[in-house]
Write a protein that binds this DNA or RNA. Sequence first.
DNA 1: TCAATCCGTATC
DNA 2: ATACGGATTGAC
Length: 719
Amino acid sequence: MTAAPTRPPHPAGTRRRAPAGARVAAATLPVARVLVEVPLAHLDRTFDYLIDERDDAVARPGVRVRVRFAGRRVGGFLLARVAGSDHAGSLSFVERVVSPEPVLTAEVAELVRAVADRYAGTVADVLRLAVPPRHARVEKALADPPGGAEMSEASQVRPDRGLGRPPAPPVPPEWSGDYPAGTAFFKAIRDGRPARAVWQALPGEDWPSRLAEAASAALSAGRGGLLIVPDATDLARLDAALTIVLGADRHVTLTADLGPAERYRRFLAVRRGERMVVAGTRAAAFAPVANLGLVAVFDDGDDLLAEPRAPYPHVREVLMLRSLARSCPMLMGGFARTAEAQLLLDSGWAQAVVPFRPLVRARSPWIRAAGADHVAGADSAAAPARIPPVAFQVARAALADGAPVLVQVPRAGYLPAVACEHCRRPARCRRCRGPLRMAGPETPGLLQCSWCGANEAAFRCGACGGTRIRATTVGARRTAEEIGRAFPGVPILNSSGSAGRPQVPDGPAIVVATPGAEPVAPTGYGAALLLDGRLLLGRPDLRAAEETLRRWLAAAALVRPARRGGQVIVGAEAAVSTVQALIRWDPAGHAEAELAARRELGFPPAVAMASIDGSQEAIMDALDRLQLPPDAEVLGPVPLDGSDPDADHQVDGVTDGSGALKLGLDPDVGDGSRLRALIRAPLAQRKALSAALHALAAGRSARKLGGGLRITVDPVELI
DNA sequence: TCAATCCGTATC
DNA sequence: ATACGGATTGAC
């Protein structure tokens, strides 16, 4: 924002609704550039307002304001104070400065704009993700509000509390001894030099400690750190490591489930520079950490790092934009490596920090495959021999050795998918046609719909009339039951989903977990059994192989090294390249091959991809209007049926329980069918593609056609 | 000729 | 989204 033309501000003296008396504009910089919170794509820019002289002191960049916009009162953020306006008409006054807290820092304002551009979304949408709602009570309660004092950017950051810049830490032995490029990267953080790394963690690596050390290096450079992990369990581990490395007073954790008050309290502590290191889950990627000296993300392949709300930004991309804007170091770590990370290495944007190869062998467990040829009747997932005999042997040995055993099962529940025994078609709910499951062993005849929850006591196949069912998928609970029978007397612990993780004893126990929910064992697991590999690898998903390896490596990384007896049995064919990558512990090679395949097929991240979906009418209009960059191509549109791919016939009517007839007034529901088109462009034209999509959204929103069309850049679901 | 209504456009 | 203005329509 450069100096504005010096047009005298219009005093808008005609307005009589202002609170008692005519308003007078502030003597200096009377014009405020305000970002209004309206969801319309064509209003995705700033608007100029006048600042009343009485608001002069508090109306600083970053504060929340309320303004009149198109006749109604809306919230907004003051982005800048300037001398004059380009606007030809008269200016309204900012009605109210909501609070003197500058919650939107200059860096985050710029970031939010960049994220919106990158994802063809609006700043208002991204702002909702980036700035937590204000909590007035918290603001009031906090001592030392930064009131009307004129503080420079620098003096707002107060690393006082007896916590000055810590001395430069020596390079930790793990960074220097385990990773050839580790020393250079650590020193770059410590010296405040920009450097970006894709870090492949050693099997068994205590990654929270490594991240905490990296954060301490940033602190010693007088700068802040931002560390993002996929879920609350990871965050708890990271928090503990940060407390050990930094003490309790320098960092703070940020998650969505803190509640509004605590969330805002911590947010303010960060904004005021009282906490220089932030660890959090995905929304924390926007945290206003002062003077960033490190951004880091662990396990960037986890889909929890993709925001599910528009415009669906991914943590890795958000942090990349911050690293780029601030020239600050960035660390992308994990046991696995995504194709996206591989692309950053290929392009030279980041450098690989990989372990010394002999160390990988020394630290990894003994990993073997036990595919179908090892399992009698393996074509049926429900066969009692689904768990290969060697898996039982390995588990027995580990338990005898006094070690816990980890069993990874892809699906939660008891029998999460069942089919008609006769025709083998998926069993479906008679009310909503959702897939049926068996909830538990207590009620063998009772099925339950996964969509509507209706109970089904007397199943009758809609296709052939069969009344008996068979399991097509076995869940974690049933698996625990089977294994428990094989090892009577051994404690069995279940861990799945977002529920808390059980404490694993440092002794014989069997832990049955779904991927991503594996608890850490105090001295490592003696063995891990990775079941139903074919189920994972066979998913009709672009990322099936990458995702499978990621889950396997995450579990195998919790197992003791082979020299301490650690073993892993993976239930999949040894000939499959993904299984080979696990056995050889070679995430880098797998990522290289994966990226090569994506290049071959023309899929992300080798190309830029976007999807638009909506009613047939909306899609046709959109494709007609879209001004695509020169080398972009449109794939589709194809019908987008919400039902799962194994549905044997489509749901042909929307029944909403009330039986109400849809009158077709809403064009998006009227003809029922939604379409989806994919748009593919070379990476060099990504910006142009995003711009074109944003222009499309703006055009449609200006014509009041906005609704019913969803635009997604880099959609997670591709196939 | 005036008012009710539609459509398009701006929203500071 | 509204809100407003100008054009359009319809009835006196």
